[in-house]
Design a protein around this nucleic acid. Structure first.
Lengths: 232, 232
DNA sequence: CTTGTGCCTTGATATTTATCAAGAGGCTAG
DNA sequence: CTAGCCTCTTGATAAATATCAAGGCACAAG
């Protein structure tokens, strides 16, 4: 593991409160791996042997049923997945694959659980992390049940715009078919949804997004922190 | 608070590991309230002042946006809601109302957070509870994104059948319009979905459900523990 | 008993979303 | 440079789902 990676991991809220000896013993069993694109890292249903930390590249979490597949989330550095399965010692509920080549740190689940038992600080940090994760999924669920596909896209774009400085210009940084799946629609439907947002001042050329007026788009999107603010 | 209620609460996995002094100080600020049906208990966006414990009756969690509303969950005794907001000291992401008259214990969030800080056992129990909640919502999200409305209904019925002993006979125990909302469809659509399940041996008269052959229904529903097993 | 009231169902129709098929454009290996 | 591959788009059509309107049924209040 590289030194700066070590520092970055330790800086994560999840790990920053750990006792020194806890962090050390967590790292003792850890190892780093580099993966090419399109590699399946974990498969839903498998036992959660490792807590994964993405330190470079992009990982997609997805789920399958009856021949269908849907993107659940995209994980970018520095972030972990999937904590809940590790803690519960349960099977993964989602599969994961690399999108771009990725560098990932693997922390044996058994170590994570042991330190969770032994270090109250870690337990507290996990509580906060899980609360955050839980609330994110609730928000995603509300998004899916309360909005149609154009509204979901509109709110997605507004959120990404804010993430990128809010100047109305940013890069999509995700393939459209993956975005479509994430937003719960087909690629064809996303194409048409994008076209229909032209009336609201949205221009998407390739991966370059331009929002002429966040206010105009907002009149359609009607964003609310109770669905769209990741920090809420 | 009644004595048997006290015992039931203490028996919850969330509270059973607490130190005696922690449990005592948690109860010190607690109070019980009885609510008539159709009372709004909490409103999404409000600060999470209390952790709620349902000891009697039924509570519906729901969310609203832009004049639309959707049922997120139904809470029955003995169970808590909403833990994550309490811990994070964040706003509620869902509203709650009584369906039948309900008896609810209110634990001030500040006390919950204080004890969470002071009692490592409580922190651990919260981690397990939140993991469970998180995974439940992930499963609900997969259900919603991967299945159409008839498939969701079919799997819902199979799950409820198992909950009720798996003999193919049980009571719906939820109004159909509420069930429709929970399953992410309109009441009209649910009516038609029920009719279409007749071909698979499902009879619903009023609230009485009969599944002639779980296997036949399963051939449509294709249940998987990775979506449909609450314990997974 | 009867008269609401609320829930559920049904039919007709509209809207949303998916599917299928084809073609445009860009990227890359050879 | 070019062939092949992949993604994205577009059009046509089908399927799924929602909306609107009306009526039936059960239950509760008077």
């Amino acid at each position: 593991m590289r030194r700066n990676e070590l520092a970055e991991i330790q800086a994560l809220p999840l790990f920053s409160g750990l006792r020194d000896d806890s962090f050390e013993s967590l790292l003792r069993g850890a190892y780093v791996q580099n993966f090419p694109p399109q590699i399946e890292l974990i498969r839903e249903g498998d036992p959660a042997d490792f807590l994964h930390v993405v330190v470079e590249g992009t990982v997609e979490l997805f789920a399958s049923w009856n021949g269908r597949e849907t993107t659940m989330a995209t994980v970018r550095p520095i972030a972990t997945f999937i904590l809940a399965a590790t803690i519960k010692d349960g099977p993964y509920l989602m599969s994961a694959r690399t999108v771009e080549k990725a560098r990932i740190i693997l922390l044996p689940s058994i170590d994570v659980r042991n330190i969770f038992e032994a270090d109250a600080n870690f337990a507290k940090a996990i509580v906060l992390e899980l609360s955050q994760c839980y609330r994110s999924v609730i928000k995603a669920s509300k998004d899916m049940k309360l909005r149609n596909s154009v509204e979901r896209l509109a709110n997605y774009l507004l959120k990404k715009d804010i993430e990128n400085g809010g100047n109305g210009q940013f890069d999509l940084s995700i393939e459209k078919r993956r975005l479509a799946s994430y937003l719960g629609m087909t690629a064809e439907n996303l194409s048409r949804a994008i076209k229909s947002l032209k009336d609201y001042g949205v221009e998407i050329e390739g991966s370059k997004v331009t929002i002429k007026s966040a206010e105009t788009l907002g009149s359609l999107a009607k964003p609310t922190p109770l669905i769209d603010d990741p920090a809420y």
